[in-house]
Design a binder for these strands. Structure first.
Lengths: 325, 325
DNA sequence: TTGTAGGCGTTATCAT
DNA sequence: ATGATAACGCCTACAA
């Protein structure tokens, strides 16, 4: 910048202003500065800027898993808002482990991110302390937490699972089963919603109606095997996770089980896949992209000094009824 | 840090060393420093560190699309290497647009990323100039480029497409069609490979055997419609992109076309999905995760001053023969 | 092994 | 509208 200033025949301060608040610099000087910048191939140093102004243009995002297509929509939503605003996105994975999340938060705070989006809603005490100490805006995404750290943009896992289960009950299914991922806090919430719905629908509650399975398509096949062996009179299966329902459908296909004749199927997440398989799978549409957008917007609003009316936004969900149930 | 130093009764330099090179500080002092850090909730400022040492611990990654599951494996590979090394990942999207890529590169260089991973291999002249000027290690990923910017870790789109097409020819299919994404540089390379294979196999080359389709499952259905209307005697379809083959399979299912009886199917990418559908789809396994790992490893090696024997690594591919062809 | 001095490249602040 | 000066918080280089 020193060199740019020299070449343009102005002070460094003027260069800085020409770069950051062009309207505050006379056109003549502004042009000379721009020419000097181009000539020297000068690249503004945002580290120095952040250090000096004690405010950065980087937002941190911590996801439970990087390999999950449902999160990529949220990433896209965040990125679409951040990029035009001149902000960058820093990404890391927590594996749904509070300890690992804590380490990542520490690393991000050391990088002086100006805001944070956390998908998990379970944090270590130390992590919460660090977040409060950092005094930066934080958005939580994965669920509507009872005790938010700061802001929340999400939907209710419990509520959505309950709604879908009630939907199945209303369709006349009475021996409904639930398959969810093991060791996953969001899956647990969904299971609670499932149970609430069963009771509210006046159906007998059967603990064996719930099964924990692995991630991925294989989890869906595990659920079908479980049903065959342990609860063969099941008439509908609600798969609460990612591609489980598709895996279940493929396995039914292989076994010659008619869907929904032998077994009705419903999915928690409406991936594109759900619409394209045969039969198309009834699913919950969750506003994954919107969650990203709103999270980023709220973060930016706070960084620009606007006080927000809402600290907690429930974006809800939608039931997409299709041929599988 | 000043406060930590005061509380621990040492100089700031000692604190800095206790943090960065603990082995160079006597245990007694180190302990006192750590206690002071904990007591004050001190968070190291990596911006200041980077500015002062003129070396950062952030790597930039630019992907054509954030919503594509095949890239998430590469992201995971990069992250798995970066995290233990204390590096962070900054992520952005180029939409396969060299102009947009150029803007992102500029933004990343302003953030003083210490290395860059680019999935695209087509860059604007200005982008290349900036990269060379920045003198940071760069890895390209999406293809084996004729004229690399710096390092390359990839596979050959042309070679892989050619191999799969030859595989289909060897299986006895003689009216093979190719479906690829429109306006996608990697899809174009794959098409070249397809054509080479057709000629090498001694099959008649028919321009109508190639069709450009949309992204996503719907693209597969488009390909099937095209075949029905414009080239009904096609006996095998090679889908060169992401989920296209699955979309084609679902559409065949809907039409009652037997796979591979009426039409054989092959996919360019081996997503999990390909193994789980019925029939399972013959696919190219591309080392997406490994590409991420190796890219990050090569970047780190260079940042640690090691000179690398290889600047260009072709990780190859594998044909997974399954029931669809 | 520890400390001192100076500077990394920018912006806040105050002055002109 | 522009400039001078002093931080921002850390590390390099050198000294003790």
């Amino acid at each position: 910048m020193r060199e740019v200033a020299k070449l343009a025949g102005v002070s460094r301060m003027t260069v800085s202003r020409a770069l950051n608040q062009p309207e505050k610099v006379k056109e003549a000087l502004r042009t000379r500065v721009q020419e000097a910048v181009a000539e020297l191939g000068y690249v503004h140093n945002h580290l120095a800027r952040s250090l000096s102004s004690s405010r950065s243009t980087v937002i941190g995002l911590i996801l439970p898993s990087l390999e999950n297509s449902i999160f990529s929509q949220t990433v896209k939503g965040i990125s679409d808002v951040l990029r035009p605003a001149g902000f960058q996105l820093m990404l890391a994975e927590s594996s749904d482990d509070p300890e690992e999340e804590e380490r990542v938060i520490a690393a991000f705070l050391a990088q002086r991110v100006s805001g944070l989006v956390l998908h998990s809603t379970r944090h270590s005490a130390a992590a919460i302390k660090m977040l409060r100490g950092a005094a930066i805006p934080v958005v939580e995404n994965g669920d509507m937490p009872a005790d938010p750290v700061d802001m929340v943009v999400s939907y209710s896992n419990r509520g959505a699972a309950k709604a879908m289960t009630l939907h199945l009950a209303r369709l006349g299914y009475s021996r409904i089963a639930f398959a969810g991922l093991v060791r996953n806090p969001r899956a647990s919430e969904r299971q609670v919603g499932f149970r609430e719905a069963i009771e509210e629908a006046g159906l007998p509650f059967d603990p064996r109606a719930m099964v924990g399975v692995s991630r991925g398509f294989v989890g869906g096949a595990e659920a079908i095997s479980y049903i065959e062996q342990s609860r063969p009179d099941t008439d509908a299966l609600f798969c609460a996770g990612d591609v489980l329902a598709a895996g279940a459908l493929f396995d039914c296909d292989r076994r010659g089980w008619a869907v929904p004749g032998r077994l009705a199927l419903a999915s928690f997440d409406d991936l594109d896949l759900m619409r394209f398989v045969n039969p198309a799978i009834t699913a919950l549409r969750l506003p994954r992209y919107e969650i990203g957008r709103r999270s980023a917007e709220m973060l930016l609003a706070r960084l620009l000094g606007r006080e927000l009316p809402l600290r907690s936004v429930d974006l809800g969900f939608e039931i997409l009824h299709r041929a599988s149930a």
